[in-house]
Design a protein around this nucleic acid. Structure first.
Length: 129
DNA sequence: CGCCTGACGAAAC
DNA sequence: GGTTTCGCCAGGC
């Protein structure tokens, strides 16, 4: 029997209104803007704070528009859950993300954030969600 | 109109 | 324990 069914944890429904259009993106940007300087968070953490922890990909997708919203969203402070700069390839110069992070005092080693766990900023915890 | 891809995550194998 | 697959939603082709 082909193990092709993964439904581990059930995700909670989105807004009762069913409105999950660009509003979701706005929320992502809002949370991302709350990231303090010198700190980092993960896509999944943001998604979780919005109530859609399974939609971590959407957070990343939302970041695609991070550069076209104002004020600019510090997308460079958002990395995946292991602290890897998965999104560096999406910056103008791929090294920009790392550069910005280092500028804030964050050490990067091989596309990975050092002391990620220590620098991790959990929106759910910090924002009190 | 349908299939594939994508800056993730987590379980299944 | 590394690899694979699924789910999420949206957009591109």
């Amino acid at each position: 029997m082909p193990a092709k069914k993964r439904a581990p944890e059930k995700i909670k429904p989105l807004k009762p209104s069913g409105k999950r259009d660009e509003n979701f993106f706005e929320l992502v940007f809002e949370v991302a803007r709350q990231i303090p300087k010198g700190r980092v968070t993960s896509y999944g953490a943001i998604a979780a704070s919005l109530g859609t922890k399974s939609s971590a990909r959407l957070v990343g997708w939302a970041m695609n528009g991070a550069g076209r919203v104002r004020p600019k969203v510090p997308a460079h402070r958002v990395v995946n859950r292991i602290g890897m700069l998965s999104g560096k390839h999406h910056f103008s110069p791929p090294g920009m993300m790392e550069k910005l992070l280092k500028k804030e005092g964050i050490k990067i080693k091989d596309d990975q954030v050092q002391d990620f766990k220590k620098l991790f900023w959990d929106p759910v915890q910090e924002l009190g969600f």
